[in-house]
């Protein structure tokens, strides 16, 4: 078949060969370069490290009672103070980080997996498959998350993390599925998908091999979104008293603080620190989300740059005047 002479000698118009010294994934580099996601990654990274070393820096049993140390304000001995039962809040917060992060990541991953598979399949297959999946999605969309969890938790015997993860994933996948279906629909009629079909690729290979790689940023954003929603929902449920009282988590610490009227007693530390941990984690995730947005939409990048320059133009004269 190579009997033909090349018709035109073309000088390849390629950039110089990429120097692959350290194999840092491209997406990580992009996120690190963007200031918003860089900040988010730092914050989240900090929380992850804290969670990882938690057993090393906390007391052996964060829920241990010690009436002697009860209701103590933050001090060198108890960095975040103690609860009304004498438990060390610092330990509770750092150990609680483990649960929260694992829960968020797991439910995010599961929800995203379901949403991506169903949403993209629906978009690509069309017809009956699409209708069936849409129906399923609508059913799950209508279910209100928190009331369902409230009702379910009263029926569930075990409120362990696995059930929470499952419940959160099942209630949160539908929203993402709808969005991913929309994006896949717009990609479906692009020529490269048709070309894959013409080349004889099977449906599954097209969904995972052609569509998913082009939707990574949206899927990643969905994952981060479910992550922090799970965090908040879980903490919220525990705060309402529906969590497992033996757990060590931010929500439970807040719950105990609430039931023991800590605020009325002027004790701000049982609220502040777990609340701060929660806020910080969610902030980190939100910043990463904003960064993903900016990185995937080049137009946003330029506008942000212009805005920053304008801002600098405003701030500098003010500084000089001051």
């Amino acid at each position: 078949m190579s009997q033909l002479q090349p018709t035109i000698e073309l000088a390849p118009v390629l950039p110089p060969a990429r120097r692959a010294r350290v194999r840092v994934p491209g997406w990580l580099l992009m996120l690190l370069r963007n200031p918003k996601s860089r900040a988010g990654l730092v914050v989240l990274g900090f929380m992850v490290i804290v969670a990882l070393i938690a057993p090393l820096i906390s007391v052996s049993d964060p829920t241990a009672f010690s009436l002697v140390d009860a209701r103590q304000a933050p001090s060198w001995h108890h960095l975040f103070g103690t609860t009304d039962q004498g438990s060390d809040i610092f330990s509770q917060v750092v150990m609680g980080a483990r649960r929260s992060l694992m829960l968020g990541a797991a439910s995010g991953a599961l929800a995203t997996l379901i949403a991506a598979t169903l949403g993209i399949l629906a978009a690509y297959s069309g017809g009956i498959v699409d209708d069936a999946i849409n129906f399923l999605t609508n059913v799950f969309l209508v279910i209100p998350t928190i009331p369902l969890l409230v009702v379910a938790s009263s029926y569930l015997t075990s409120r362990d993390m696995k059930s929470m993860i499952l419940f959160l994933a099942l209630t949160l996948w539908a929203f993402e599925a709808r969005i991913l279906r929309g994006q896949a629909l717009s990609l479906r009629n692009r020529d490269f998908v048709l070309a894959a079909k013409v080349a004889g690729e099977s449906t599954w290979r097209i969904v995972f091999g052609e569509l998913v790689p082009n939707m990574i940023s949206r899927i990643a954003a969905g994952f981060v979104l479910v992550f922090y929603i799970s965090l908040l929902v879980d903490a919220g449920l525990e705060f309402l008293g529906l969590g497992d009282t033996t757990h060590v988590s931010w929500g439970m610490t807040l719950y105990w603080a609430q039931t023991n009227s800590a605020v009325l007693q002027g004790e701000w530390w049982p609220f502040l620190f777990p609340g701060l941990a929660l806020v910080l984690t969610v902030l980190g995730l939100t910043l990463i989300l904003a960064g993903i947005d900016e990185v995937s939409n080049p137009r946003l990048r330029d506008e942000v740059r212009v805005r920053r320059r304008l801002l600098r133009g405003l701030v500098l004269p003010l500084r000089r005047a001051a």
Partner: peptide
């Protein structure tokens, strides 16, 4: 499909932006 093939209009649209040229030729 192995006997009847197509060349599309949009040279950018018909190639998957996330895959190398090698992938595009190797798959079929």
């Amino acid at each position: 499909r192995s006997q009847v093939q197509m060349i599309f209009q949009d040279p950018f649209g018909s190639l998957n932006p996330a895959k190398t040229v090698r992938h595009h030729l190797a798959r079929p």
